[in-house]
Amino acid sequence: MPTDFLATAIESALEAGDFLRRHFGTDIKIEEKFSYDIKIELDKLAQEKITQSILRDYPGHQIIGEEGISGAKESEVCWIVDPLDGTVNFTYGIPHFCISIAVQQSGKTVAGVVYDPIREELFTVSDPGLPKLNGRVIKSSPRSFLSDAVGVIGFSRTKETISKATELFFNLVPKVRKIRFTGSAALDLAYVACGRLDFYIEQQIQIWDIAAGSLLVEKAGGKIITKTIVKGKTFGLKATNGVLNLDFVTFD
């Protein structure tokens, strides 16, 4: 069954990705502005396309997305959707964003897709199964020394989480090769899964940003540690390649 779910997730992600790619670099309608984020009309339109595609195949399922909830709330199968992870990048013309779709059955993630429509990179995973990038099996990096490591620290959206991330940044900079800031949590996780990055740390992140990517990391040999902030919705997250020692990094 996860393979059937994966086929629908792939189809939905590719369709939404084509839609976003065609609108990238055009006039963007900004609907809401926040201190550290924005909302655009294309977020909602992309989620509508994904929702229609999923419910066409599975009308009895539930869909939880960044832009709202659809479908049957009582279903044991729940689709977790971020139609545009990296909205600020997209709006400012930075070609680093993606679509993230995960499928959870009885609370366990069984399939996931992260799709970068600009690079046309499709990360896929199912449980059981192996994680892949455009059909090729991927695995996390073997780097075990902090001095060799390249990773991402996310700065979330609140003054408290930004303060904690800043402290962590200054702690890690002398220890690792490089710290990056990319603007897309799902792609950060996909990059840990395929060995481009060695770690990704976020003080506060939403389930739709990390559901698919976390399964990619785990199945690629990496390690995911989360701290629940709001049950089923918001988490602190530490993702590593599985061999790098970042035990000193905590969410306290």
Rank of each mutant, 00 (worst) to 15 (best):
L45S: 06
G71D: 10
I50A: 07
T87Y: 11
I54C: 11
Q52C: 06
I80Q: 03
S53D: 11
G86R: 10
A46N: 04
H96E: 09
D57Q: 05
F90H: 05
F90M: 06
I94A: 08
K73C: 02
A72T: 14
R56E: 14
I50C: 01
G60S: 14
P59V: 12
G60V: 03
G68D: 11
I99E: 12
C98Y: 05
I99V: 14
F90G: 10
T91L: 02
K73M: 08
F97G: 01
G71E: 05
G86H: 08
K49H: 08
C78Y: 02
D57N: 13
S75G: 03
I64V: 15
P59T: 13
G68Q: 14
I54Q: 03
H96T: 07
P59M: 09
W79I: 15
E67K: 06
I99W: 03
L84V: 10
S70V: 00
T87H: 14
E76I: 08
V88A: 05
I50E: 07
L45M: 15
L84N: 05
I69V: 15
H61V: 08
T87M: 15
S75Y: 00
K44S: 13
K44L: 11
P59Q: 13
P83F: 01
S75H: 00
T51S: 11
H61I: 11
V88P: 11
D57V: 09
H61C: 04
F90V: 01
L45I: 15
P95S: 10
E76K: 14
I99Q: 12
P83N: 07
V88W: 06
K73T: 09
L84W: 05
R56W: 05
I64S: 00
E48W: 08
T51H: 02
I94R: 13
W79M: 11
S75L: 07
G71H: 11
H96S: 13
I50D: 06
Q52T: 14
I80Y: 04
D85R: 03
E76R: 12
I99G: 03
I69Q: 00
